[in-house]
Structure formats: structure tokens, C-alpha cells
Design a binder for these strands. Structure first.
Ligand SMILES: [Fe+3]
Length: 943
DNA sequence: AACAAAAAAAAA
């Protein structure tokens, strides 16, 4: 379609580039519109498209509507405020002259660099629609116009809105005729005369506004990419051809099409997870899959099951069914940490590989979503493969059946638009954060099924974000799978209620949630029609654990360590603080020497990886490569609760909340091993609890100690200890059967509290509740309100003028972040060398000296990045933090700024003894002990 | 000042 734009319209610039190249405004509008058409037809997940078609009464005119909406976003550039912005720009004056020559006046004096053309677009659209369409509500037109107003990632704010309107008042009327022309011709180009009045007959919801804004931004970023949309294009060229060609070159991956699945659950799992013949799905897996089939429309499945029950596979199998039933084009799999996300990546990719077969002809994109995804080797490989494919132009056959790391669908903001995303849970929680460009995340997630792993692991603050994110996802009709160990009923109720309220289902009652009782595994499913509980055949008893209290002194600890020295066995000593761990490790070294290991988070990343690798090679799941040592004492902090698949014969753990005690206990007798493998003293799993200052009695309450209560809430410790001491006198614990009962007792009010503890428990409980209330309130400060609570899109953001993604401090309280953390410093450790610095000697044999002038190659950059280290809590106090940050910034190699991997990192320089002083604190790094804060020499007394 | 672990940080 050739458009006959006026001379005036074609004089307006929209983009400028190198060597006098430029693009006029009508062209950018048509380019964007043409991209919008393709995105609507081919890229948008079918379920999402259907939903918009229905909500906006599009009646088959989705393409014209998407075309108009994406095309109109920059119409605010047709103003003297925008066109005049090139006035001061040397070498670009000709654009000014051309506009003036076309008879469009610019005021000579003032520059309007403040002018947000997005707000200008909003104003023009509001005006034009009100003037040209009959019987449309002012409010409804504003909702539609707000989308263009938000196309830079934040809605228009009231301040700029007023300032822009004032400018429009004084604008020479000739501008208005060109604006009208752009509006009219665009409607002609997009053929949207009929659909627009229909769209304006109903109120557009916040959710629809968000995804539509996301679509506009995506179209804009594509159409503004000069690799695909060259500037200075001839008038005769068709934008639709440009868009078609661009998107073919880009090889954007389309929504996954879900093939028909076999009827038998066993076959489904065998096919998707490449199981050997004969292996069958576990009851909990088959039930989860069946539940997914039985959901009516979008729904949520919460699977609580012990580890090793095959939750990941169950979730993926269910996600496929749910995606196919609700027309979603991909999956987001979210895990609590970067390490767990990395571990999931290849499993999820294997699953995707079985869907995207060569026969299917599909290509699908995979993105790893976390801040260190650049260091992941599997992704690096996939990216290299992708850049190879890119060159085989338009030979789609070679790509069919591939899972690719798409070069455009990557990065913090666009990565969520890939078909399959594996990443940290933060990536889902950001959905509820008032961040700039949040709409892209909404667009990406609204078209997927979202799986959230380890739901039991999140605190009050994160749960507040999770609940709000689920509410929005429910409002989008996004299917959800939650995976968890036993979840406290109040937490589960809160999350399911949030999702249900998004779905607009009536309240979820406590009874509906409590129906799951103390079953394990158990499935809770919610859709528009209600909540139900599905119990499955319980797995057999894994073992019976006997339990004892250990006095918190080194003699008691040594006694058990002697047993390991004399009779062998693998013992885990789990301490709540690094200090306690280092102390216990010193003791272990005295007793078993080199048969002891220490693990905590104060190691540089690569050393910790090596330590963990060694542990897995010795205590990992049975295989040819695993050689179990006769004797081993591993002293560790909570890092060992995480993803490591290790098996110990016995454990000594500091007191901790019940769910964590059980998770720690899960490291004991974890794998099937012949009894002869275990020392006689640990034939039955042994659990000792220590770290209690005074265990108390029926007549006196216990004391846990200051540090323990800083880390864990006293109320929870009290209830846990009440439960555990009862079991100690009784007959220990049956694993996994007893788990739900123990957890629910502690997080509910069923713990056997002696009367003499009541007062202190009540106080502790009040304190905990106050803390939780405080956390929930802090979480709210940058959180989106519920999707239906704000009358405007603007109202979703508290401040429309600022990008809060940069961890800025709010003027009032709290940070714009989804985790409740004190500020921490992460550094990259390097060693001083004459004239510069070097990579730590055990990681680089070349002795290369680096200086600010040296060109750091990619391998060096990755090695440096692997020397990252988190500094201890003593650096989190504001003054220390600030001072340390200043010192680190001052000594960081300025050349790192040029490296994609090292940019923004801080450099900590240690001397040849691996010592340094930071913010007045003496630090030393040791490969077996980790980072140690050395006690400074006693300051000399002055008299 | 008494503390685990965990995450995050570029657009048209
Ligand atoms: Fe723009």
C-alpha cells in the first residue's frame, strides 16, 4: 500500500543516524504499524490474543487495531517541541531547515529537551479521538491514549502532562493540521476506522493496557533497530515488506505449538524426559498431570512433595497441558537462586528438545534469566551456535527442531519475551515492582505458564511480592504451578487467594486450604470453579531418625568427631554462623586432620564451586565417578541446605526453624546405599541438635543466644524446640511422613508449649508479627497495587518520572527491590603485582600483570568474574559500607568498564599474603577457610 | 556495630 503523505508530514524527522541518514515520521509510524501487525498475528500467544479480542470487542479486527496502536505511538513527535530539539545539534541543522521550509514554525528561542513526546502522543490521540468519534467516553479514550503515553516504559506523569498541555495551547494551528493528517492517514493505513469506535465502547483494563503497552514497546524497539529497518528509505518501499523481511532475518521465535500427548501418564513422562523403557511415573507425578487435565480454564496447581518425588518433571508435564489448554506459548521456570536456575537449565532444555523435534518444524528460544547468566557455559555454547545459524540466511530447514539462545530475545528486559525462560524467582517478582518497562515483563509472562520452585523458601517480604505477582498473573489468566516442600497453610492460603482474586473467583476460605491436612505429597488445585485437594499414594517410609541434644561446647562436639575418627563415616556439622563454622572446623582439623572440609559463602565463587564439586565427587549420588571416603567431616553453614545433592551418615545441626531442620536432616541417608557403606554407629540416621545456649525445661524457657535469634525468629525457634524436645523423649521422627505435622505445628499453633514458656512465646510472637507487618509494609512501597484497584494505568506507579530499577533509595522508606536485604558489597578479588594487579595465582599460571591500560581478553575477564566474593555483614553498616564502597571504587580498574562481564564490578586488591585492609578492617583470604576478618592489633592505650 | 544466604544493576 503506497501512502500519499503530504510534503509537511514527510519533512518531520523521527530518527536520525550516521552520515545524514534519517527516517521521517510517517515512515516510522508505518514501520511500527507493520511490525505490530506481524506481532499480533504470529508472535502473540494465542490465548493472550483471544483474550484481547474478546475484551476489546475486536471482532476479528485484531490486526488493524494492533497496527493502529503500534503505529500511533510516536505521533507526539509532530510538535515544534520535539522537532526543535535538533536546533542546537551541530550537523543536524538541515532537519530544522527542512521542517521550517515546509512551513511548520518552530519557536527560535526555547529548547524543549524536557518534552516527552510520549505524553505528546497521548494528548494528540485524546484530542483527535474525542473530536472525530461520536459517543465515546472521555475516560475510555484516555485509557487507550495512555498506552502511547507509556511507550517509554513509564506512564505520563501529571507534571509533564500539565506542561505539555500548556505547550499545545500555544502551538501554531498549522501543526494541528499535520497531526490530524497523521492520525487520519494512519487509520487508513491500518484500516482501523471500524475497530476503533468498537474498542472505545468499553473500559480498557489495567492488565490489557499493560500487555498492549508491552506490545507497542516491542514493536517500537524492533522498528527502531537500524540493522533491520535501515534509515533513508525510498518513499516507494513498503513498510509491510520491510517488516516481513526484518522479522524473517531476525528469526523471531513464535509461540510453541504443543503436540498431542499420549493418554498414558507413563508415556508422557517417558517421552518428555527420555526415560528408559520400564520406568513409570510416580503417583504424585501422574496425579499432577491428571489435575492439569482436569482444570477448567486457567488455574493454579500447588504440589507439595518431598525431595526426590520428581517435582520438576511433574511441573513441566503439567505446564505443557496447561499451556495447550489456555493457549500459552512458553514457560517460565523460576528458582530461588542463580545456582538452582543454572542446574535447571539443562533439564528444562532437555524437555524442550523433546517438544521441538525436527518433525515439528518448530524453533524455540531459551533464555537464562539472572544477573550472571553471561557466565553460564551452556548458554555461551547455545549463543555461539545461534550466531552460526544467523548466517545461514532464510534456510529455515536447518533450524527446525532447535532450541536456540535468541540474540534479540535476551537481556534483562527482552529476555522474558523468549519462549522458555529459566531464571531466578526475582524475575517473576519484578512483575509486581513499579519498574520502568515493567510492561515488557508483563507481556512476556502473560503469554506463558509460570512455574515457581521451592515456594517454601521465601520470607514474608518476598511472599508479599509473590502474592501480588500471582494476583496479576491470575488476572492475565496465566496458569501457575507452585512446587514446594510442606508449606504452612497460611502461606499457601495467601498465595492461592491472591491468584484466585486475580482470576476473579470468590474468596478462598481457610477450610478449603486446610483440607490438605497433613498429607504429603499433596496437591492443591484452584481454578475459577473452586479449590480442591488431591492426595496421592504416600511414598514408603524413608527412614526413622533418632534425635539427641548436644551441649553447645566443644567437648561434646569433639566426642562425636572422635567417633568419626575411630570408626569412620561422613558427618555434617551445620552451623548458623560463619564464625561458629570456622570454630568447629578448627576442632575437626585437630581431630581428623585432612579428612575435614569447610564450606560457607565467604569463598570466591570459583573456589566454592571447586569445593562443592569435590564434595559431590565424594558424597554425591552413587555412580562410577563417586568415590566415598572412609572418613569425612564437613563443617558448613546454610549453603549446604541449598541445591547440593549430598549424602551424610549423620548430622549435627544448630537449632533452626522446623522446616529448615527437616531440610538439613534431608542431607542424611539421602541416597540408597548398602548398609555396609555406613559405619555401625550411624546405621540409623543420627541427628544432634546443638547451638542452644540453655535448653530450658518444662519450668524454664530456653535461651538460644543472640546470634541465633538475629538469624531466626525467636518465636519459631521456641515452637520448633518445644516440638523437637518432645520427639527426643518420644521416638524420633519418621521421614517423610512426619514432616507436615511437624511443620504445621510450628507455623500454626499446635506446638506443645510448656505453660512456663507461654509468656516469652507471646512476647516473641508479638515481635515476629510486628516484624512481618513491617516487612510487608516495606514491600508495598514500590509494589504495583492489585490489577483492578487503580482507575488509571498512571495510578499503578507512585512516581511516573523515575526509573526505580537502579536500586535508588526512596525518599520515604525502603528500596525498590524484591528481596528484603541489607546492602551488601560484592567484590572481585585480585592480587597486587608490581606495576598493576594480577589474577589470583592459583587461577592463572601465566603471571600476567594487568594495568588500567591492558586489554583484558575475554578469558581473563571470565576468570576475573569467577573471583567474586560477598563481603561479610560487618560491611553492611552504613558508614562502613559507604567507606568501603568509596575505597573499592577508587581502586577499581577503570578499564573494566569496557568489559561486558566486568562492568560495574568492584575490585578488591589483596597483597601476596592475600591480606588487605578495607574500611579500616583487616581481611585475609584463605583457600580452605574463606575470607577471615582478622582482629586488629589492640590499639595502643594513650594515657 | 554481636548476622546466613540469597539477587540486582542499557534502550529506542
Ligand atoms: Fe518514541
Amino acid at each position: 500500500m503506497t501512502m500519499d503523505w503530504s510534503f509537511e508530514a514527510k519533512s518531520l524527522w523521527a530518527k536520525t543516524g550516521e552520515e545524514e541518514s534519517w527516517l521521517n515520521l510517517p515512515r516510522h509510524m508505518m514501520d511500527s504499524a507493520a511490525v505490530g501487525e506481524v506481532l499480533w498475528t504470529d508472535w502473540l500467544a494465542p490465548g493472550l490474543r483471544k483474550r484481547l479480542e474478546h475484551n476489546l470487542n475486536l471482532q476479528g479486527d485484531g490486526v488493524p487495531f494492533a497496527s493502529w496502536l503500534t503505529g500511533v505511538h510516536d505521533v507526539g513527535k509532530c510538535t515544534p517541541m520535539f522537532q526543535g530539539q535538533l536546533r542546537q545539534r551541530i550537523g543536524l541543522e538541515r532537519h530544522i531547515h527542512r521542517v521550517l521550509d515546509a512551513g511548520l514554525p518552530l519557536r527560535d528561542t526555547t529548547t524543549h529537551d524536557w518534552y516527552p513526546h510520549s505524553t505528546g502522543s497521548e494528548i494528540i490521540i485524546q484530542r483527535w479521538l474525542a473530536e472525530h468519534l461520536d459517543n465515546v467516553s472521555r475516560r475510555y479514550t484516555n485509557h487507550l491514549a495512555a498506552i502511547a503515553g507509556a511507550h517509554h516504559g513509564l506512564p505520563s506523569g501529571p507534571g509533564f502532562d500539565r506542561a505539555c498541555k500548556a505547550e499545545f495551547q500555544q502551538m501554531d494551528p498549522v501543526w494541528r493540521t499535520v497531526q490530524d493528517e497523521l492520525m487520519e492517514r494512519l487509520i487508513e493505513y491500518s484500516a482501523s476506522y471500524e475497530v476503533l469506535p468498537r474498542v472505545l465502547r468499553q473500559r480498557i483494563s489495567r492488565t490489557d493496557q499493560m500487555v498492549l503497552t508491552g506490545l507497542v514497546i516491542m514493536a517500537d524497539w524492533l522498528a527502531s533497530n537500524q540493522d533491520y529497518f535501515p534509515l533513508s528509505v525510498a518513499d516507494a518501499e513498503s513498510s509491510r515488506h520491510r517488516a516481513e523481511h526484518a522479522l524473517r532475518q531476525l528469526a523471531l521465535t513464535m509461540p510453541l505449538e504443543w503436540p498431542d500427548l499420549p493418554d498414558s501418564a507413563h508415556e508422557v513422562f517417558a517421552k518428555r524426559f527420555h526415560w528408559p523403557t520400564g520406568r513409570t511415573a510416580r503417583p504424585a507425578q501422574a496425579e499432577t498431570l491428571r489435575t492439569a487435565h482436569e482444570l477448567n480454564g486457567p488455574g493454579l496447581i500447588c504440589l507439595e512433595a518431598p525431595m526426590g518425588a520428581g517435582k520438576t518433571e511433574a511441573a513441566l508435564a503439567a505446564a505443557e497441558v496447561m499451556a495447550s489448554q489456555t493457549g500459552r506459548g512458553g514457560v517460565m521456570f523460576a528458582a530461588p537462586t542463580m545456582a538452582t536456575s543454572d542446574a535447571l537449565l539443562s533439564r528444562v532444555k532437555g524437555w524442550a528438545d523433546s517438544i521441538v523435534t525436527t518433525d515439528s518444524g518448530q524453533v524455540t528460544s531459551l533464555f537464562l534469566g539472572h544477573s550472571k547468566q553471561g557466565l553460564n557455559e551452556e548458554m555461551q555454547q547455545l549463543r555461539r551456535a545461534a550466531s552460526g545459524i544467523q548466517n545461514i540466511d532464510e534456510d529455515d530447514a536447518t533450524k527446525a527442531g532447535e532450541v536456540v539462545a535468541h540474540q534479540w530475545l535476551s537481556g534483562r528486559k527482552l529476555g522474558m519475551l523468549a519462549n522458555i525462560v529459566v531464571g531466578t524467582v526475582d524475575q517473576v517478582l519484578f512483575l509486581a515492582l513499579q519498574a520502568k518497562h515493567a510492561m515488557l515483563r508483563h507481556l512476556g509472562l502473560a503469554g506463558k505458564v509460570v512455574v515457581i520452585d521451592e515456594v517454601h523458601a521465601y520470607d514474608t517480604y518476598m511472599n508479599a511480592y509473590l502474592a501480588r505477582a500471582l494476583e496479576w498473573l491470575g488476572a492475565y489468566g496465566v496458569p501457575i504451578v507452585l512446587l514446594s516442600a510442606t508449606l504452612p497453610h497460611t502461606t499457601k492460603a495467601r498465595l492461592i487467594a491472591a491468584y484466585a482474586s486475580g482470576l476473579q473467583r470468590a474468596n478462598v476460605s481457610a477450610d478449603e486450604i486446610d483440607a490438605s491436612g497433613t498429607n504429603y505429597p499433596v496437591i492443591t488445585a484452584a481454578d475459577r470453579h473452586g479449590v480442591r485437594t488431591i492426595t496421592t499414594e504416600a511414598p514408603p517410609t524413608q527412614y526413622h531418625a533418632s534425635m539427641n541434644l548436644l551441649d553447645d561446647d566443644l567437648e561434646s562436639l569433639a566426642e562425636i568427631m572422635h567417633r568419626v575418627r575411630d570408626e569412620g563415616g561422613a558427618l555434617l556439622v551445620l552451623c548458623n554462623t560463619v564464625g561458629r563454622a570456622q570454630e568447629a572446623y578448627a576442632l575437626a582439623q585437630d581431630i581428623v586432620g585432612d579428612d575435614s572440609r569447610l564450606l560457607h559463602s565467604r569463598f570466591i565463587a570459583i573456589d566454592r564451586v571447586d569445593l562443592e564439586r569435590e564434595l559431590v565427587a565424594e558424597l554425591g549420588p552413587p555412580s562410577e565417578d563417586v568415590v566415598r571416603p572412609h572418613r569425612r567431616i564437613v563443617v558448613a553453614t546454610q549453603v549446604i541446605e541449598q541445591s547440593l545433592d549430598l549424602d551424610f551418615d549423620a548430622i549435627i545441626t544448630d537449632i533452626a526453624p522446623m522446616d529448615l531442620v527437616l531440610q538439613r536432616l534431608g542431607r542424611v541417608h539421602r541416597h540408597q546405599r548398602p548398609a555396609s557403606d555406613r559405619p555401625a554407629w550411624a546405621e540409623q540416621p543420627q541427628l544432634w541438635i546443638r547451638g542452644i545456649e540453655d535448653p530450658g525445661s518444662d519450668t524454664t524457657p530456653p535461651e538460644f543466644g543472640y546470634a541465633q535469634e538475629l538469624i531466626y525468629a525467636r518465636a519459631i525457634l521456641l515452637k520448633t524446640w518445644a516440638m523437637l524436645r518432645q520427639r527426643m523423649v518420644g521416638d524420633g521422627m519418621e521421614i517423610p511422613q512426619d514432616i507436615p505435622q511437624l511443620v504445621h505445628a510450628v507455623y500454626g499453633d499446635k506446638a506443645p508449649i510448656p505453660a512456663a514458656w507461654n509468656q516469652t512465646l507471646n512476647e516473641a510472637q508479638a515481635e515476629l508479627e510486628a516484624q512481618q507487618l513491617d516487612a510487608a509494609n516495606r514491600a508495598k512501597s514500590f509494589m504495583f497495587p492489585p490489577p483492578r484497584s487503580s482507575p488509571t494505568m498512571r495510578g499503578l506507579w507512585k512516581d511516573q518520572t523515575r526509573d526505580v530499577g537502579q536500586n535508588e533509595v526512596s525518599e520515604a522508606q525502603g528500596f525498590a527491590q524484591v528481596r528484603d536485604t541489607d546492602p551488601t558489597l560484592e567484590v572481585i578479588v585480585t592480587q597486587h603485582a608490581s606495576g598493576g594487579y594480577r589474577i589470583l595465582p592459583w587461577l592463572d599460571e601465566s603471571d600476567t600483570v594487568l594495568t588500567a591500560e591492558s586489554n583484558i581478553d575475554e578469558r581473563q575477564a571470565y576468570t576475573l568474574a569467577s573471583c567474586s566474593l560477598r563481603l561479610p555483614h560487618s560491611f553492611s553498616y552504613p558508614e562502613v559500607f559507604d567507606q568501603a564502597l568509596d575505597e573499592l571504587e577508587e581502586h577499581t580498574d577503570a578499564g573494566w568498564h569496557h568489559s561486558y562481564v566486568l562492568k560495574g564490578q568492584l575490585q578488591l586488591m589483596v597483597d601476596e599474603d592475600l591480606r588487605c585492609v578495607l574500611a579500616g578492617k583487616a581481611l585475609r583470604y584463605d583457600r580452605t577457610l574463606g575470607l577471615i576478618e582478622e582482629i586488629a592489633d589492640e590499639p595502643k592505650e594513650h594515657d
